[in-house]
Simulated assay, not measured.
Amino acid sequence: MALFRRMLGDVLRERRSELGLTLREVSGVARVSLGYISEIERGQKEASSELLASLCDALEVPLSQVLRNVADAVAVEEHAVAPTPIGSLPQPDQVVASAA
C-alpha cells in the first residue's frame, strides 16, 4: 500500500539532494526544526499545508510540482502491487495470441 507521507518524504528528500542542501540549510530557510523535516522525509510525520508550502519555498519548487511527483510515485507503486482483475484473465476456451 502506498503511503502518501512516505512518498512525499521521498520527493522532498530527492529535491533537497538535487540542490545539494543539508537538512540544516533547509531548516533555516523554511523555519522548521531540522528534526521535524527529517521525520517528514522519512515518512514518519504528516506535513501540514503551511509547513509543506514553507518547505517548497525553501526547496525552490512549486507545491504543484511536488504533488505531481508524489502522485506519479503513488501511481507507479499502486500499479506494481495492484492485483490483476479476474475479468482480464484468459478463459480456458480462449486462444491467447503469442508475440513469438
Rank of each mutant, 00 (worst) to 15 (best):
G28R: 15
V74S: 07
V70S: 01
V26C: 14
D57F: 14
S38E: 12
L63K: 09
A75D: 14
L21V: 08
K45A: 02
L55D: 04
N69D: 11
Q65S: 10
L52C: 06
L23Y: 01
A71Y: 04
L59Q: 05
R31A: 15
Y36W: 10
D72P: 09
E18P: 15
R68D: 09
T22H: 11
L51D: 01
L52A: 08
S27R: 06
I37G: 01
G35I: 06
S48V: 01
Q44H: 09
E60A: 11
V70H: 00
T22N: 11
E60R: 12
V32A: 03
N69F: 01
A58G: 10
L55M: 06
R16I: 07
E78F: 04
R68Q: 07
G20S: 11
A71H: 07
A80H: 08
E25N: 13
G28T: 15
R16M: 15
R31C: 06
E77H: 07
E14D: 08
E41P: 08
T22F: 11
A75E: 06
E39I: 10
N69C: 05
D57P: 07
A71N: 03
S64A: 14
G35V: 12
L19M: 14
D10Q: 07
I40Y: 00
L52P: 00
R15D: 04
L51M: 05
L21E: 04
E46A: 12
E60K: 10
A75R: 05
C56F: 01
L8Y: 00
V70Q: 00
V29T: 12
V29P: 13
I40N: 01
I37A: 02
V11L: 11
G35M: 07
L23P: 02
A75P: 03
V32P: 09
S64G: 13
C56L: 01
Q65W: 10
L19I: 06
G20H: 09
R15S: 11
L34C: 09
V66L: 02
L23S: 13
E18R: 07
Y36C: 04
C56Y: 00
R16G: 04
H79Q: 08
D72A: 14
E14W: 03
L59F: 10
S49L: 14
S27K: 08
G20K: 05
E18K: 08
S48P: 10
I40Q: 00
R13C: 10
A47V: 01
E18Y: 11
L19T: 07
G9L: 00
V81N: 15
R24E: 04
A73G: 08
I40P: 00
A75L: 02
S49M: 06
E41R: 07
I37V: 14
G43A: 04
E78L: 02
E14A: 02
L55T: 14
S33T: 13
Q65P: 13
C56K: 00
A73L: 03
A53K: 08
L63V: 06
A30F: 07
G9C: 03
R31L: 07
S17F: 12
A47I: 00
H79N: 15
E78V: 01
R42P: 14
R13H: 14
V32N: 03
S48W: 05
L59G: 04
S64Y: 07
A82G: 13
H79M: 03
E18M: 09
S49W: 15
L59A: 12
Q65G: 08
A58I: 11
D57I: 04
R15L: 13
V61R: 10
D10C: 13
E41Q: 05
Q44S: 08
D57L: 10
V76H: 09
V11Y: 01
V11G: 02
A58L: 08
E25H: 13
